[in-house]
């Protein structure tokens, strides 16, 4: 049992536990805090995969920017009260949970059937460094990178149009 496996087990258990916390707790703000823990555990998992830049971006973008936005909206809508958040268990939810478990079983079944042999065994030791990612992003994948800016522009315009108060 080496250190890497111990780290993976701890971070994986933390990630699964906080993910269950997101869907199990009643209050949205607790779910958001649980999701922040989940994102940080995932950043740790990226570190065990030698993806340093991804880990940094995970904490900055997800645990930072996106979760601040979510918490801001929860606070803005004042969704605190416990009575109003009581959930009714309906047959629709039962069907949904059953379908999800079937889907998860199918995915795990497929993964355990396929044996992945890694051709890049020790191929790129610094594959996750900022230098390597920046070179790949701005040399090999520069057109997809530019296309992404269009998505961001569309999102900005869409958010403004949707959230603004309509004047008659």
């Amino acid at each position: 049992m080496n250190l890497e496996l111990v780290l993976f087990t701890i971070l994986g258990a933390l990630a699964i536990g906080s993910a269950i916390g997101v869907i199990a707790v009643r209050s949205p703000i607790s779910a958001a805090m649980s999701l922040v823990v989940h994102f940080i555990a995932l950043a740790g998992l990226y570190l065990t995969l030698n993806a340093m830049f991804m880990a940094a971006i995970q904490v900055l973008v997800y645990a930072g920017a996106i979760m601040v936005l979510v918490v801001f909206v929860i606070m803005l809508l004042n969704l605190g009260s416990e009575e109003k958040l009581r959930e009714r268990f309906t047959s629709r939810q039962g069907v949904g949970i059953t379908m999800s478990i079937l889907l998860g079983a199918a995915i795990v079944f497929t993964i355990t059937r396929v044996a992945f042999n890694a051709p890049g065994e020790g191929g790129l030791p610094s594959g996750g460094s900022v230098q390597a990612i920046g070179k790949a992003l701005f040399v090999d994948y520069v057109y997809p990178f530019e296309m992404v800016s269009l998505i961001l522009l569309a999102a900005v315009v869409g958010a403004v149009v949707l959230a603004k108060r309509h004047v008659e």
Partner: peptide
């Protein structure tokens, strides 16, 4: 595991 940066992009 495949030593390719495309996944991270």
């Amino acid at each position: 595991f495949f030593g390719d940066q495309a996944g991270q992009i």
